[in-house]
Computed example of a mutant assay.
Amino acid sequence: MAMVRFKVGQDLIPDGLTLPQILSFVHLASALKNNIILVQPPSVIPSSAPTSPPPAICNFLADALGISLEATLTCWKLLKEEVWTYTTAEQEVFELEAAFHDHRWKQGIILEAFLTLYLPSQFCTNSLCARSKPLKKDQHHQAVVYTLVHRVQPAWSVHLSCQDCCTNYHNNFSVLGGLHTYYGGIPKYIQVGEHQFVENTVINMWITMMLVGWFSATNCARTYNIALSWQQEADLVLGGWQFGTTLMTEHVWDAFIIYMLLQDHCTQDICMQVPHTGSQKDRFTELMKQQ
């Protein structure tokens, strides 16, 4: 059988790479764009592909695709523009889960979870702040995400902070002056605890169960834990995860409250604000009284 060589412009893709490997390279690398952006110097514009990805990403791609590190770097050189402009669909990302599961533990902190929850923007959005460079001061916290189709997932929640105005940016909201200010719209994953997030489709399911089936929040949590989580606690413990996967009743109630309040604010075209201080159960009380 004749060997097929693939070209990008006038350059040849390394010997031995198959078309599925090339496509997987683009898909995997594209799914990791936020990870790549985060470690670049502030002078690198997020909309442009960097010269090379960080070593952990290169090693992960090489392991996942079964190719040499040299071939990985060559693929990046030739395909980085395609990687940077490619938009990976969510379903497509989850189809790559096996690669993350098999190889993520080898490559350092940011790849230890399949899901990484980033901010909507890499820039400070405080209208009173003059900073124009991308945010680079980051913290990563372990989290657990409850999804509908893809069960319970360990995740990293990435927080960025602006060193100029001291605004802290989280996945769902920013924190400044003692206030949580939620971003506009309904997040894909809604934070319901310090380290717990719930996919909004799961919350919609719970609302339907409550309205149609007269389920209590406790039974919503039990149903998810028994029928949908599919996740063994041991899997996360072996991976060094400090949080269990059991969904609690208070997570269901908080998800319901936050989701409904966000929907109400969306209809008014305003951003929701709640106190940063106090316990989670009391944070939304005053806002609910105003409804």
Rank of each mutant, 00 (worst) to 15 (best):
L28P: 01
V202A: 12
A64F: 01
D254N: 14
H141L: 14
P55A: 07
S174W: 00
Q139P: 09
V152Q: 06
S216D: 03
A221W: 01
G177N: 13
H265L: 04
T51W: 02
L78H: 06
L176D: 03
W76P: 00
D235I: 05
Q268F: 04
S132M: 13
I270S: 11
E81L: 15
V4Y: 06
P41Q: 10
S24T: 09
C165F: 02
D138E: 09
M288P: 05
P154R: 02
I226P: 05
W230F: 04
E81M: 11
A98Q: 15
G240L: 02
C220P: 08
G108H: 00
A217K: 07
T18G: 11
F243E: 07
L211M: 12
L28G: 08
D102L: 11
M205R: 12
L247V: 04
S43I: 03
P120I: 02
C124V: 07
T125C: 14
H276Q: 09
I22A: 04
H276W: 00
I57H: 12
I37H: 01
L79D: 10
L247A: 02
S157D: 10
Y183F: 12
P275E: 14
T181E: 13
M210H: 06
M210F: 01
E286L: 15
A2Y: 05
I226Q: 11
A155M: 05
E199K: 01
I22W: 00
G193H: 00
F25K: 10
I258E: 04
K136Q: 08
A217L: 00
A29R: 15
N225H: 05
V212L: 12
I67C: 04
H159F: 07
L69W: 02
S52V: 06
R104A: 07
T125L: 15
H101K: 04
H265E: 09
Q273V: 07
V149C: 09
Q122G: 03
I257R: 08
I67W: 03
S161D: 08
G178H: 13
K80G: 01
V145F: 00
I110R: 14
C124K: 08
Q107H: 14
E82R: 14
L19E: 06
S52N: 05
